[in-house]
Design a protein around this nucleic acid. Sequence first.
DNA 1: AGTTTAGAGGATAAAAATGTCTTTAATTCT
DNA 2: AGAATTAAAGACATTTTTATCCTCTAAACT
Lengths: 153, 153
Amino acid sequence: MLSKAAEYAIRSMVYIWMMNQKGTRPGYRTIAIEVGSPEHFTAKVLQTMTRFNLVRAGKGRGGGFYFENPEEELPVFEIIKAIDGNKFFSSCAFGFGNCNCANPCPMHDEFMIIRNNYTEMVQKVTVQSMAEKIINGTATLNQKLNAVGENIV
Amino acid sequence: MLSKAAEYAIRSMVYIWMMNQKGTRPGYRTIAIEVGSPEHFTAKVLQTMTRFNLVRAGKGRGGGFYFENPEEELPVFEIIKAIDGNKFFSSCAFGFGNCNCANPCPMHDEFMIIRNNYTEMVQKVTVQSMAEKIINGTATLNQKLNAVGENIV
DNA sequence: AGTTTAGAGGATAAAAATGTCTTTAATTCT
DNA sequence: AGAATTAAAGACATTTTTATCCTCTAAACT
């Protein structure tokens, strides 16, 4: 499963991309409110994003976060790697540092298939493809809750 | 990814099953040494296993852990659920409590496929099937390290 | 230049996961 | 009955993850 940090990062990035399309550069305060993540923690996570050059940040009035090349497809894979490293993409079910074909754990073969599928998936899903779904109305970035805090179904 | 607790639990259960086959009931001290897990933490994890009736424990001299019905296939799924709950099996990529078809996150469809495959896998892989691999010599329960602590390849 | 705005960075706090230690309870053997 | 053995249970410690706060720095606008 994704860490909270990675989760917030992905949500934030999609939001930034969408706002950029509308011609604005959101700040982390706005982002946190809109994607439903803790404000300062979101700021930290976005620092990591800029450090890895996955997004750019402008200081001062009119500043905020933005993509230099919004057309360039950004796979979720890159975001996850920046935040969580490639722990998941390299480690095995049994936590063996380097469970490999020569010295496999008893779930190695089965786990490899899942892991490869997952890796492929997060390489295929991009910030743009996700944003598109939200614009289409076929997905939501933040869970819609009713007044009592219950999920709307 | 599995928690450490779940990881140790799976390894321990496979080891117990194999020792039972040989006619012995290992204690948690032995188990911890043999599967390479922290002793007392392993004890805790095994307490959970007995509480969920996934294995039995005998106290006193000649005691230790054992399976009442060793023939009955035990899917890894059950072990993971006992330790980690069904967090992973029910939650979505975006951590939405109940991201569902009616209110999906932008990775919902893609993630569902992976999650279903994973669930299927851990339901198919059992303590017995894993033990068999180890007995065959086609897998190891514990990472074999050389004198310097490096992985043997 | 000075003021305002916004991210960067460091220090700290809280919570959860992981790991350790000690005591208690149950069982077996003598 | 008493001693030895082994899991159960609770208290405690450490580490990692998650979250908050405060100060610093850069940019923009007047």
